[in-house]
Amino acid sequence: MPIRINLNKEFLSLDQLKPGEIGMIQDYKGMGEISGRIKELGLIRGSLVLVKKYAPFNDPLEIVVRGSHLSLRKKEASQIVVIKVLPKIEP
């Protein structure tokens, strides 16, 4: 899938992405504050993350990373810094 990195490089947190949008992980807020488990499941710098959908009441969210579907709470997702990448694909 051809991917173009968003040129204006706006840093967002993962929970700011809308369903169907893809982000590339840049960094985490706070050193070692977020659980290591998130990284062990493949959410490391440079990983592409597709936000699939939000649960009822907008929390938690479902993401797709490395082909596996995971669910994170907004609290954790807000600690992950991403830039939006194109293209937007259908959820």
Partner: peptide
């Protein structure tokens, strides 16, 4: 103590 991370398997 454990963050809520859930796998949604196929």
């Amino acid at each position: 103590l454990t963050p809520f991370i859930l796998e949604l398997p196929p």
